[in-house]
Amino acid sequence: MIDCFKMNKYQSVDENILYMSMQIYKLLDKSEHIDTLFDKYSKKQNINLSVNLERLLYLALTFLYSIGMIEAKGNLIRRI
C-alpha cells in the first residue's frame, strides 16, 4: 500500500493525492461530470485511465470534498 500523501523517490508524482487534487481543482472551471473530469485529467497528464488511476482520482476528489473545496450536486462536481 502506497502512502498517497508523502513523496519519495520510488513514487511518481501522479500517485500523490495532494498533487492530483491540485490538478483536478484546476480543471474544474465549470461543473463537470466525474467521467468527463477523469478523461480531462488523463488527457492533460498524458496517462491512460485505469482502475488504479480512477481509485486515486476518487481519493483526490474525496480529499477536496472533505476540505470544502468542491461539492457534488446530482452527477456534477463543481468548485465552491
Results as ranks from 00 to 15, higher is better:
residue 74 G to F: 10
residue 47 I to K: 09
residue 18 L to E: 14
residue 9 K to Q: 01
residue 26 K to H: 12
residue 18 L to W: 06
residue 30 K to E: 04
residue 32 E to N: 13
residue 14 D to C: 08
residue 1 M to N: 00
residue 78 R to M: 13
residue 49 L to N: 03
residue 60 A to F: 03
residue 56 L to G: 05
residue 62 T to C: 09
residue 55 R to M: 09
residue 21 S to Q: 07
residue 48 N to V: 14
residue 13 V to P: 00
residue 66 S to T: 11
residue 29 D to Y: 11
residue 43 K to G: 05
residue 65 Y to G: 04
residue 29 D to E: 14
residue 11 Q to K: 15
residue 25 Y to P: 15
residue 45 Q to T: 14
residue 62 T to I: 08
residue 79 R to H: 12
residue 34 I to M: 10
residue 75 N to M: 07
residue 9 K to E: 04
residue 32 E to G: 02
residue 14 D to Q: 06
residue 16 N to E: 13
residue 52 N to Q: 03
residue 26 K to C: 12
residue 80 I to S: 08
residue 39 D to L: 10
residue 58 Y to W: 14
residue 40 K to L: 15
residue 59 L to E: 13
residue 5 F to D: 09
residue 47 I to V: 15
residue 65 Y to E: 11
residue 51 V to G: 02
residue 22 M to F: 14
residue 51 V to P: 00
residue 80 I to H: 07
residue 27 L to S: 10
residue 69 M to E: 15
residue 47 I to M: 10
residue 19 Y to G: 00
residue 14 D to M: 14
residue 26 K to N: 15
residue 80 I to K: 08
residue 22 M to K: 03
residue 36 T to E: 09
residue 79 R to F: 07
residue 68 G to I: 09
residue 50 S to Q: 04
residue 34 I to Q: 12
residue 5 F to T: 08
residue 13 V to D: 03
residue 73 K to W: 04
residue 61 L to H: 06
residue 61 L to E: 06
residue 20 M to V: 12
residue 77 I to M: 08
residue 78 R to P: 03
residue 37 L to W: 03
residue 6 K to Y: 05
residue 64 L to W: 11
residue 26 K to W: 07
residue 79 R to W: 08
residue 26 K to F: 11
residue 53 L to S: 01
residue 23 Q to Y: 06
residue 67 I to E: 12
residue 6 K to W: 01
residue 49 L to W: 05
